[in-house]
Amino acid sequence: MRFLATFQTLDFLDTLASLMAAFVLGTLIGAERQYRLRTAGLRTNVLVAVSAAAFVDLAWHLAAAEGAVRVIAYVVSGIGFLGAGVIMKEGMNVRGLNTAATLWGSAAVGSCAGADMIAQAIALTIFVLAANTLLRPLVNAINRRPLDERSSEATYELLVTTSPGAMGDIRELLVAKLEAAQYPVSDVNVIDRSDDVVEIVATLVSTAVEAKELDAVVTDLARQPGVRHATWDVSTKD
């Protein structure tokens, strides 16, 4: 058998050490993901790390460093397809980006382990875990900050609810008041909510916005005959 002729104990122990390192480090990363009930949890991250290590180790033994480099390139692209499977879009929200990035990190850890760079694999694992745990309080603190309307890249919309009969006049009045406040309108849409209710949505041209000025426009519009409700909203572009 060719196996008996080519088997070398030291090479096998080297491979075993690489796979074991990838297994342990992948477990550390996956345990944090499993604890937070992410789509790609413990087993997925372990399998990604171990598989990446196995492919790189195999290429290293067959074609040395040149072969390992080629396989690592394929691992990077392959994990991209796997990560796309955990990214989900729900309305305007996108979920799973962090999970996909963590899978990429697990693959990098496995690749380092497969290339016998176990110290680097351990260091990378620490950084991945730190990104998913130590940075979480900072992310929460940033998310709790009030949105700065003047400096953020955002889309501003004014929404006015009225009757179909008054729609034409209210639409012209809405555009006129916004232009008078020096807020040019990029688009105006009319949405039929029911037989007797329509919603006029005016999207502003990207510009610095003063919240008090939009509040004044909305308050003035709400007082007009035929207007049932008027408000404005802001959403970030990213």
Results as ranks from 00 to 15, higher is better:
58 L>T: 15
148 D>M: 01
201 V>N: 11
158 L>A: 00
7 F>L: 09
157 E>Y: 01
36 R>N: 12
140 N>S: 13
135 L>C: 05
118 I>W: 00
146 P>G: 10
230 A>Y: 00
7 F>C: 05
178 L>D: 03
198 V>E: 02
163 S>T: 14
136 R>S: 10
55 F>C: 08
129 L>G: 06
35 Y>L: 13
23 F>G: 11
175 V>K: 09
50 V>M: 15
167 M>E: 12
130 A>G: 12
58 L>W: 09
186 S>P: 00
24 V>Q: 11
77 S>Q: 02
15 T>R: 13
227 V>Y: 01
111 S>Q: 03
9 T>K: 12
106 S>G: 14
198 V>I: 00
155 T>Y: 07
5 A>K: 15
99 T>Y: 08
108 A>C: 13
234 V>D: 04
161 T>M: 09
106 S>F: 05
1 M>I: 08
162 T>R: 00
1 M>V: 11
185 V>L: 00
35 Y>W: 15
126 I>D: 10
43 R>D: 10
139 V>R: 05
184 P>S: 07
161 T>A: 09
188 V>S: 04
16 L>E: 05
90 E>S: 13
125 T>Q: 10
133 T>S: 14
223 R>G: 10
194 S>E: 04
190 V>F: 01
144 R>K: 14
82 L>V: 04
222 A>S: 07
227 V>L: 01
26 G>Y: 06
126 I>R: 08
187 D>V: 05
160 V>E: 04
10 L>Y: 10
128 V>K: 05
203 T>H: 03
200 I>Y: 00
155 T>E: 14
203 T>G: 04
133 T>G: 09
221 L>H: 01
201 V>M: 05
81 F>G: 01
225 P>L: 07
44 T>H: 02
116 D>W: 09
172 E>L: 14
62 L>Q: 13
34 Q>M: 11
3 F>Q: 12
42 L>C: 07
40 A>V: 05
135 L>H: 08
122 I>N: 12
179 E>P: 00
80 G>H: 00
91 G>L: 04
140 N>R: 12
216 A>H: 05
174 L>M: 08
59 A>E: 07
145 R>F: 06
20 M>L: 15
119 A>M: 13
141 A>R: 15
71 V>C: 01
165 G>H: 04
188 V>T: 07
105 G>C: 12
201 V>R: 04
175 V>E: 14
184 P>L: 05
148 D>A: 04
214 L>H: 00
204 L>E: 03
102 T>R: 07
61 H>P: 01
123 A>I: 13
20 M>T: 15
47 L>A: 04
213 E>S: 09
